[in-house]
Structure formats: C-alpha cells, structure tokens
C-alpha cells in the first residue's frame, strides 16, 4: 500500500505527548515516525542512550514511551538492546514468550559517532535483529552544545567556540553512515524528517522488518544548538537535503541507492545563513568556499557509490 501520511498518523502514538523535549526539536517527530512504522500488533523494546531524548521522555515517575523502554548509560544503547534481543531469542526458543518483539535503540550523535561507536559497531557486527537509530543534531546538545565528531566545520559550539583567532570547529564531520555501510549489514539508511515524512517512514519500515541489524542516521535539527526559530524545523531539514549537506540514501545489502536528487542543488550558504552557529563565517567567503568544496566532493563520491551520473 502506498504511503499516506494521514493514514499512518491515525495509528496510536507509541511516544506520547507530555514529554519535555524543546519546541522545534527534530528528535520527537523522528522517533514518533519510526515507531509508527511498527505494525500495530508487534511489540517493541526501545532503548536510548543518555541524551536529550532519554532525559526528557523518562523522568521518574513518568514515561512517555508506550512500549517497554530501557536506558542504562551514554555509550551502550546498542549493547544494552543487543542483550534484550538475545534474551528474546532465547526465551522465544524455549517457549517462555510467544509475542513478536522488535528492538530499536536510539542515540544522539555524541552517543553514536563518539562514545557509543564501539558498542554500536559490535552490536551490528554480531548480527542482532535490531535497528539502531542515530538522531544527529551535530553536537552534544543535552550537556550544552559541545562539539562532537558530527559537528560541521566552523560551527560555533561551547567547546569549539568562534573566537578571535579560531573560527569555530576545525574539522569536517565524520561520514558515519558510510562507516556503518562498511560493516556489511543488511540495511543502512540516511534520512531526515522532510515533506510528508515518506522517506523517513519507509526507511524505518525497511530497517525494522529487514531481518538482522539495521542502522539509520536521521538528521534532527536542534533550535538551541543551531540557533533557528522553532517554527523552522522542517525548513532547516529541507535546506540540509537540497544543499546536499544531508543527502538521502540507503545501502541495501551493500548496494548504495540514492533516494533523492535535488533538481536544483542549492548553495551551502543557504544552509549556513539559516543558522546562528555559522553567523561568524558569513563574512568569510574563503570558509564558505571551503565548505562548498567539501560538500561537492562528498556528493560526487556518493553519486559514484550509487552509480548515478555525476
């Protein structure tokens, strides 16, 4: 059946309202859309690394999660969920349970690209039937906007401040989605909340219902860290896609496939000027050219991987 936002929105919410995430944050619509891709009758165990999503949705004695949920620490969302999945496999085998469960681990970019990378890599390599979702907002937002290896070059963060001598973060971001694709797992996707959420929903469905490990890297704009008006969440996501800062693609059994090619690739300055964290380089054309060149290089590499015309 073709995707229909109105119809999928009628499914009962599995991450309910009342949580304490900021207005204009990308993480809650991302999490809700992913959970909507679960079949209604299927049960799920959801895990989360320490971070905004966790501390804002499960503050004792309240939880916003309708499914069983576990948080243990920052760097081990993948390992924790892999253990739950292993228990499920054993208990199903011995007849202790007969319901169908799906296993989804969330982590921010700090908990995924950085401190949780080993745990994630291990869980994916072992082949657990689980989905790992990185909601990437490009910094440690929960602790006050510190730089991570997902932070874009020249972004002003609290540990890569735009100073008089050093203009923000000095490194380009890590290409984690490609790192995960190199694991040779059945399903890897890069997606974002955009338009009618079709791309995110359909990739979530594939990730959840492909047997074995799956990884999704989902752009999740952060109004505090990126410094944009909260009403502009979807617009920020759209500019990221159309400038090719955040291309949409998937890797199915090792085959790269481009999900969307902008008709008119917008200049990266459109994306930079929409955010306060790049304000200090807007009068620095050399920096903007440098970023544009990197974006173009990565985009060309991706087109080649996907077998698309450059």
């Amino acid at each position: 059946m073709a995707y229909n936002l109105k119809e999928t929105s009628l499914k009962p919410e599995r991450l309910t309202g009342g949580h304490r995430m900021c207005a204009g944050c990308g993480a809650p619509p991302v999490a809700r859309t992913i959970l909507r891709a679960l079949k209604e009758d299927d049960k799920a165990v959801i895990g989360s690394a320490t971070g905004c999503l966790e501390v804002s949705t499960f503050l004792y004695p309240y939880t916003a999660w309708k499914d069983s949920f576990i948080h243990t620490a920052f760097e081990n969302s993948a390992a924790t969920i892999s253990g739950a999945e292993a228990a499920y496999t054993a208990m199903k085998k011995t007849g202790k349970i007969d319901d169908t469960y799906k296993f989804i681990a969330f982590g921010g970019d700090g908990g995924t690209y950085d401190i949780g990378l080993q745990s994630l890599s291990g869980a994916m390599e072992r082949g657990h039937d689980m989905v790992y979702v990185c909601y990437d907002n490009g910094a440690y937002m929960n602790t006050g906007i510190q730089r991570s290896s997902a932070t874009p070059k020249y972004a002003d963060t609290s540990t890569s401040p735009a100073g008089k001598v050093v203009p923000g973060k000095q490194q380009f971001r890590k290409e984690l989605t490609r790192v995960m694709a190199a694991h040779g797992i059945p399903y890897v996707a890069q997606t974002a909340p955009t338009k009618n959420f079709k791309d995110l929903y359909e990739k979530s469905e594939k990730a959840i219902y492909t047997p074995g490990p799956a990884f999704m890297n989902v752009l999740a704009p952060c109004p505090r860290g990126w410094r944009y008006e909260t009403s502009k969440l979807m617009e920020l996501s759209e500019i990221a896609i159309d400038t090719c800062f955040w291309p949409l693609f998937e890797v199915v059994n090792g085959e790269y496939k481009l999900s969307y090619r902008p008709k008119n690739k917008r200049p990266i300055s459109d994306w930079l000027e929409a955010q306060g964290r790049f304000k200090h380089i807007m009068k620095n054309p050399e920096a903007i050219v440098e970023i544009q060149e990197e974006i173009d290089l990565k985009w060309t590499q991706l087109l080649r991987l996907c077998g698309e015309q450059e």
């Binding site: 165990v45 390992a79 924790t80 892999s82 739950a84």
Partner: peptide
C-alpha cells in the same frame, strides 16, 4: 561482545528483558 562494558550492558538488557 566487543568489550566488558558491553558484556555488562548486554547482561543488563537481557536481565531487564526477563
């Protein structure tokens, strides 16, 4: 697992699962 940190994390996940 790929580390003892993950060994204990997986045991926690498994035991919490039931």
């Amino acid at each position: 697992v790929e580390s003892e940190h993950s060994a204990m994390s997986a045991c926690i996940g498994a035991q919490a699962a039931g």
